[in-house]
Amino acid sequence: MSIFYFIAFLSILFAVLVISAKNPVHSILYLVLTFFTFTVQYILLNAQFLAIVNFIVYMGAILVLFLYTLMLINLNKDSEPMKTNMVKIAAVLGGGCLLVVVVAALKVVGVSDPVLVRDPNLGLVKNLGKVLFDEFLLPFEISSLLLLSAMVGAVLLATKDPKIA
């Protein structure tokens, strides 16, 4: 349990550093660390497959692309558009409202019913595969179609050729 709290503390620390870092590239690197702490949490939950997939997909692919984009556009203090104070105040108010809603929602949910995991080895790749391709086959296939359509849409938007777009 103490390991959980330590890793959870690190997750929150790195997450705060993501938004407080001045340099966008540093911010992405902190995000990489945040995702790494998530991977450790999954391993602690005995969900090895989820851990390694989080590692490969988020740390190994998505964040590399984030980093790639940020390095290309090379944001820094001089070129960053400065927001006016009005916008900043509005942002603080909006964020505060969101926080209130989230806290209220959490309060209603409460912690009365701790979910009991029937099989502690559920996160192993064999069991997870059986559940995904048997019990949840339809949602699984539908979400894969959704991802495919999103990908096709992105390619379509990015294509400049008027004949194709």
């Binding site: 990489v32 390694i52 740390m59």
Partner: peptide, 25 residues
């Protein structure tokens, strides 16, 4: 012998690019 050994290798490979990217930047 972790039971996702093959994916572990794949993960390490995908992490390898950070060394190059961070150094280059």
């Amino acid at each position: 012998d972790i039971n996702v050994g093959l994916l572990y290798i794949f993960g390490v490979v995908s992490l390898g690019v950070y060394g190059v990217m961070i150094g280059g930047w």
